[in-house]
């Protein structure tokens, strides 16, 4: 059996995170190359600060400056960093108890090699060349015993460098939390980019490969005998895969539709467009496609339509081989003939 089709899918968004009063002070201080912690009602100093006291559940009464040096409580060594991590060469992750704190803060240590790392070693932050009020303002920590090292990214290069590309903070209008006249940070932007391999089901792959040959293949459920297009890994009412191939014509009716006038991020079809539920002749379920070839306000429920295929040389294993559907000009189907498909 031929393997199902698969292709990469990237999920990517720059999230805008508002910080609230406690984290805003922490980030604002980072921009100023200072690290704050919160003193808990039990006296313990949390770094980063706890937004709500673990014992009293109230916001912390005070934030105090800690560090900048600290002690490694535990560490692990990474030979192969993954995207987005603070360093792109081998480094250590560590829980670091900053001087004056009672908790460990997770960050990277540019330790050279695993052999040079030790629990109990003293470290200090290496600040990014440009700080903006986010956790990556601390580029990493470094052994406190070695000579201070310049940030990897020179200021001039930093604008295009990883430290800045990894995120940025936004100064806002909250007055509280400003330190030394620095503009308070109220938001951070956190890019989240994840790569996945999307896989179509065996049944859908069969449909997509048929599309590449200019054919539309549905499948009949062995239990309810309904014809599904695309075929399904499980008939939704019977929980068994659809099995028997049924070649379907490339024409049918519009059961219902909407006219999309609203633009949005990631949209790939120009507005306005008609997204329609199209019931192919011989199928028992409609699928979504685009209607062109007439003005949007001429599209009707029950209108007969046929596929307009892209040139065969452009065909691939995708529903986009059918560029759109267009009216055939035949009389509309009576409402009763498709009412049970709505």
């Amino acid at each position: 059996m031929t393997a199902p089709l698969s292709a990469p899918l990237e999920i990517s968004f720059d999230y805008t995170r508002s910080l609230g009063p406690v984290l805003a002070k922490f980030m604002t201080a980072l921009a100023d190359r200072r690290i704050l912690g919160s003193r808990g009602s039990d006296g313990r100093v949390h770094v980063p600060p706890a937004e709500f006291d673990p014992v009293s559940f109230a916001p912390p009464a005070e934030l105090i400056e800690v560090g900048p040096e600290g002690t490694v409580l535990t560490w692990s060594w990474t030979d192969h960093p993954v995207d987005g991590q603070p360093l792109d060469r081998p480094f250590a992750w560590a829980l670091i108890r900053l001087d004056g704190a009672d908790t460990g803060m997770l960050h990277a240590v540019d330790g050279g090699s695993a052999g040079q790392m030790r629990t109990g070693m003293r470290v200090r932050p290496r600040w990014a060349a440009q700080t903006s009020g986010q956790i990556t303002d601390i580029e990493c920590f470094e052994p406190a015993t070695q000579p201070a090292r310049q940030s990897a990214a020179e200021p001039a290069a930093a604008a295009a460098g990883q430290a800045v590309a990894a995120g940025q903070a936004v100064a806002g209008q909250v007055a509280d939390g400003a330190a030394d006249g620095a503009e308070p940070v109220t938001m951070i932007i956190t890019p989240v980019r994840l790569g996945y391999q999307h896989t179509a089901s065996t049944e859908e792959s069969r449909y997509l490969r048929a599309l590449q040959d200019g054919k539309i293949i549905g499948q009949r459920c062995p239990a309810c005998q309904k014809v599904y297009v695309p075929p399904r890994g499980a008939c939704p009412t019977d929980g068994v895969p659809t099995t028997t191939d049924v070649e379907l014509p490339d024409h049918g009716i519009v059961t219902t539709f909407c006219v999309v006038n609203v633009p949005f991020q990631g949209q790939r079809v120009a507005t306005p467009y008609v997204a329609a539920s199209i019931l192919l002749d011989g199928a028992d379920i409609a699928f979504q496609h685009l209607i062109l070839g007439c003005a949007p306000d001429e599209v009707r429920m029950g209108m007969r339509v046929r596929a307009v295929w892209r040139p065969p040389e452009d065909w691939g294993t995708t529903s986009e081989n059918i560029d759109h559907f267009e009216p055939t000009g035949e009389p509309d189907a009576p409402y009763e003939s498709y009412a049970h498909h709505l």
Partner: peptide, 30 residues
């Protein structure tokens, strides 16, 4: 942005998704 999150078109499909409104409007018409 919810429209973005709900309209991510996986490979092989028609990129017609238009958020919750695009999904429900045809049923309102019906």
């Amino acid at each position: 942005n919810a429209m973005w999150a709900l309209s991510i078109a996986p490979p092989f499909s028609m990129p017609l998704l238009a958020g919750a409104g695009g999904y429900f409007a045809p049923h309102v018409r019906a």
